[in-house]
Nucleic acid binder design. Structure first.
Length: 773
DNA sequence: CAGTGAGCGAGCTTCCGCTTGACTT
């Protein structure tokens, strides 16, 4: 017999709460939403006022059955999901699905997981807020309508199995537009002049202005030969630095990316582990709020470890409006725990969270900036030396937030004592040609930051959204090598001016997001026909209306109707009038044949094509796939023509032809009817025979190592080496080895046992298998 | 490891936000 059943969203939260409530209360979890719109036929009856059809998915049936059983037994059911739109909807779905009797059902919310807060909530129950529920239903239905009406248009007009949605399509748009800014960007050069002056310590100064061109720079450097350098002014300015607020999902993803090189999904998986182990508070939150308990604990830790003057209590306000303070910021549950046990990634992420939280409750750092101005007797330009002294480190003792732009660090060293009027002797004056910087490509984390600024997506969806646009092939996450760039360097040393041309590497990228051709074509198509939904403020606009529904100012079905009618008209018009979209672009005539060279999206990806097929003359065009990194939008005629040199015969090896080509899995070398993929750095257009042979041999070695053991008793049973280590193969079925098995020691009987006990891992998905995002 | 939308053709793909496992060749 259960007297009181409390239902929350997450099992970890259930466990914590149960401790506070005593034995009269049983706490269970709904594991998020328990039902959703049916996937067939939209799941919405548009004719009947957008009536939603909700379905409990197979995975959730067990959870629901269990909850139903407990609810029937219970005297009182307490629905304790979050206070926001989604949480209210969860409570409502529960009350509907479990057919809860209103008299014995109570809705409660708490803002903090503490004994007091929870007991207080129990004392102040309320009913379900149907306006809030309706706002959620409107959000859900709008997203379904947009996603399930736009995606099929893409299947017909671009390519099957593509997708579009309120969030993902705007994310792709951001990347496409940034890439276009980069195409268009024209870098201009200027000269930056640095002076090094003698002193007890070297004094490094920078010319206050950038010089426009080479002539001006040479004139200036010449003029420095006979110049006197005098300190004209020394000013000292106090300044301070303030700690960043505690982590939200988005800021945690950004810092873990910058400081630890984690992808956003890695960060979330590790944070989930920390949460389940009880080390940190909930990791999906947009709140920067710390509980009173946490603020007190931080005070204690800071005072004990660093002293009272390092402590400065602060309360942070979440910028995104609304009553979303249901969650706290992401923080350690026990602030006196500096470190935890766990994997190295877990430890590092925990430490980051600990430092950020502690720092947010520490004093400002106070800094003194010294600016020394140095006059040049032969010029109106001035040198400026900047020094920084930290007078009090404050929060900097534990933590400093990184920033995205990796601009060159300017020398902010300690300056030696100096006084105005002092004459300085130049040791060296260097003018280097510099270039204006193109806009930066997005990383996963900087894209999340941008989406959050636009109010698009939620903490629980940032990582899945990135996976979606990667999985659809709209976006590639890649490293790119930089290119060499020449620059001029002029040095004045010991009265002599030398001019030199130097080379630097520029534009290299690591783990950056690049839009693909398909991403660009889909984006352009959607922007042309659905400008409204693709606009950056579409979400903000509809959010306002959802808020109005939540406040009872408008009726949800009316809002949806007003959106849907014009939208659906656009959908029909687009299906009727738009052309098949393959991103075609003409590059001009082929110098050999005079036929037109075009690039476009083909059935299997972007291709270049010479000539057109002609049914009368039975003429067929030539085709060649584009290489990785080449885009329809930017490829030149010369680059495209080079692609037609594939497949290319490099010569003979062991009396058989070595051929380079591009296939389904990218560039390959073929030899004796075996295929080996080229490595990332190999260019199929220029790879030499020796390197190809190297790859062939590598391929042979791998194949030799692939088979660990074949059993004499049954040669269809093999132990093989795969991407994730050893596995068993039997007549085409694969089997996982139990954890910690030493593959080389397995006997025939051991293997038979494994096969008997396990299901093959490579079987086709169940017909009703869940979709992976 | 081909092919580069017609031209036999069923039925499928897809959204966003809540939550965890199950699972990966």
């Amino acid at each position: 017999m259960i007297r009181n059943l409390v239902i929350v969203e997450s099992p970890a939260k259930a466990k914590t709460i149960e401790k506070f409530l005593g034995k009269d209360f049983t706490v269970k979890s709904s594991f998020g939403h328990i039902r959703d719109l049916a996937k067939k036929n939209l799941g919405i009856d548009i004719e009947k006022g957008f009536k939603p059809e909700y379905i409990i998915s197979d995975e959730k049936k067990k959870v629901v059955d269990d909850l139903r059983k407990s609810a029937n037994e219970a005297e009182t059911v307490w629905l304790a999901s979050d206070e926001d739109r989604e949480g209210e909807a969860i409570a409502w779905h529960l009350s509907e699905v479990l057919k809860l009797d209103k008299k014995k059902t109570k809705r409660i919310v708490f803002h903090e997981i503490t004994k007091d807060a929870i007991q207080n909530a129990i004392k102040n129950p309320r009913g379900i807020d149907y306006n809030l529920v309706n706002a959620q239903q409107a959000r859900r239905i709008l997203d379904r309508l947009v996603g399930f009406e736009l995606s099929p248009i893409l299947w017909k007009k671009v390519k099957p199995a593509l997708s579009a949605g309120r969030v993902q399509s705007v994310a792709v748009r951001l990347l496409v537009e940034r890439e276009r800014e980069i195409f268009k960007f024209n870098s201009t050069s200027f000269f930056k002049v640095n002076g090094v002056f003698d002193g007890k310590v070297e004094i490094k100064a920078e010319l206050s202005d950038k010089l426009k061109n080479l002539k001006e720079t040479l004139d200036f450097i010449e003029s420095c030969k006979d110049a006197t350098f005098t300190i004209s002014d020394i000013s000292k300015k106090p300044s301070k630095k303030t700690p960043a607020p505690p982590f939200t999902t988005s800021t945690l993803q950004q810092e873990a990316s910058r400081k630890l090189n984690f992808s956003v999904s890695q960060t979330m998986t590790i944070a989930q582990k920390l949460y389940e182990a009880g080390h940190i508070t909930y990791m999906r939150t947009d709140s920067v709020n710390l509980s009173d308990t946490a603020i007190d604990a931080a005070k204690k830790t800071i005072c004990e470890e660093f002293g009272e003057k390092y402590h400065n209590p602060r309360r942070y306000k979440t910028k995104s409006k609304g009553a979303q303070e249901a969650h706290e910021a992401i923080r350690p549950t026990y602030l006196d725990n500096h470190k935890i046990t766990g994997s190295s990634a877990e430890q590092r992420l925990y430490e980051l969270i600990w430092k950020r939280t502690i720092a947010s409750q520490m004093s400002d750092a106070s800094i003194e900036r010294t600016v020394v101005t140095i006059n040049i007797s032969t010029s109106n330009y001035k040198f400026v030396a900047t020094g920084e002294v930290i007078l009090f480190d404050g929060f900097l003792k534990v933590y400093f937030e990184s920033s995205d732009d990796d601009s060159e660090e300017t020398g902010k060293d300690l300056l030696p004592p100096m006084k105005a009027g002092q004459v300085l002797t130049p040791k060296e004056i260097i003018a280097n040609e510099r270039f204006t910087q193109r806009p930066a490509r997005y990383t996963e984390a900087s894209l999340v930051k941008k989406l959050e600024e636009l109010g698009i997506g939620r903490p629980s969806t940032y990582a899945p959204t990135i996976s979606t646009i990667l999985n659809r092939g709209y976006v590639l996450k890649e490293d790119r090598d930089g290119i060499e760039r020449k620059y001029v360097s002029i040095v004045l040393k010991k009265g002599k001016v030398t001019k030199e041309e130097k080379v630097e590497i520029t534009g290299s990228e690591k783990a950056k997001l690049f839009p693909s051709d398909i991403g660009i074509v889909v984006n352009d198509f959607l922007v042309e026909y659905f400008k409204n939904i693709l606009s950056y403020n579409f979400t903000a606009t509809v959010e306002k209306e959802f808020d109005d529904i939540a406040e009872g100012k408008i009726e949800w079905a009316k809002m949806i109707d007003q959106f849907y009618r014009p939208f659906h008209k656009d959908v029909e018009k687009t299906l009727r009038e738009s052309d098949y979209s393959k991103g075609e672009r003409s590059l001009g005539p082929d110098p050999k044949s005079g036929k037109e060279v075009i690039v476009r999206i083909g059935r299997f990806g972007p291709i270049a094509q010479i000539g057109e097929s002609n049914t009368e003359t039975k003429e067929k065009p030539q085709y060649a796939s584009l290489l990785k990194g080449q885009l329809i939008e930017t490829i030149t005629l010369e680059e495209a023509l080079k692609l037609f040199s594939l497949p290319r015969n490099l010569g003979l090896y062991e009396e058989k032809e070595v051929v380079i080509g591009i296939g389904r899995f990218g560039p390959y070398v073929r030899h004796a009817s075996k295929f080996v993929s080229l490595k990332k750095d190999d260019n199929p257009l220029s790879i030499p025979l020796e390197r190809a042979i190297e790859l062939i041999e590598e391929g042979r070695k791998k194949e030799r190592e692939k088979v660990i053991k074949v059993f004499a008793e049954d040669n269809t049973l093999q132990l093989l080496n795969g991407r994730w280590g050893a596995y068993l193969n039997h007549k085409g079925d694969n089997f996982k080895l139990p954890k910690g098995t030493d593959a080389s020691k397995l006997t025939y009987n051991d293997c038979l046992k494994i096969i008997g006990e396990q299901k093959p891992t490579n079987k086709k998905k169940k017909p009703q298998g869940k979709t992976k995002r």
